[in-house]
Amino acid sequence: MSGFRPSVEAAIPALRRYARALTHDAELADDLVQDTLVRALRSEHLFHGGDVRSWLYTILTNLNRNRLRSLARRPAHMSIEDNDAPDAAGPEAGERDIERALASLVDDQRTALLLVVLEGLTYREVAEIQGVPIGTVMSRLARARIQIKSYLDGGTRPALRRVK
């Protein structure tokens, strides 16, 4: 498949963006991307057409989920003390707020939201990547949006409130 390598190559910037948004850690994000690429290249012979980009997102999403599982004993991404009201104005403060809002999401919701909003994948593609029906993707997306709003509104402590 002659288009394989170029397709993988073209996806790298977007994969880095996605990984960064998932992890908020530049080093870790690039490690995830590298692992994703190595795996993809190793399985190149197994790839018979289809959407390379979507497949790469699937690998990266799974690798990240494995990583989170291995950290499962650790407390959530941020401590509760960290959750003071969103900082006062300024562009940097706004950036931190959205990072924290994303970090406050349950992993599957964060993944769904980022794949749709940041990476522009279709609901169907996201459903395939996450291995769930489209309806589940929709409800993850909806919950993620509610949670982000309540986080940015400053009222809710994400760790304490379950958004149903």
Binding site: R5, V8, E9, I12, P13, A14, R16, R17, R20, A21, D30, V33, Q34, L37, L41, G94, E95, I98, E99, L102, L113, L114, V117, L118, R145, I148, K149, L152
Partner: peptide, 24 residues
């Protein structure tokens, strides 16, 4: 607005030159 904030936050990452470590 949320989507816009998320995209703005991470746009720069995808615009960085790809580091050499990703040489396929």
């Amino acid at each position: 607005a949320q989507a816009e904030v998320v995209r703005n936050r991470y746009r720069a990452v995808a615009e960085e030159p790809v580091p050499a470590r990703f040489d396929l």
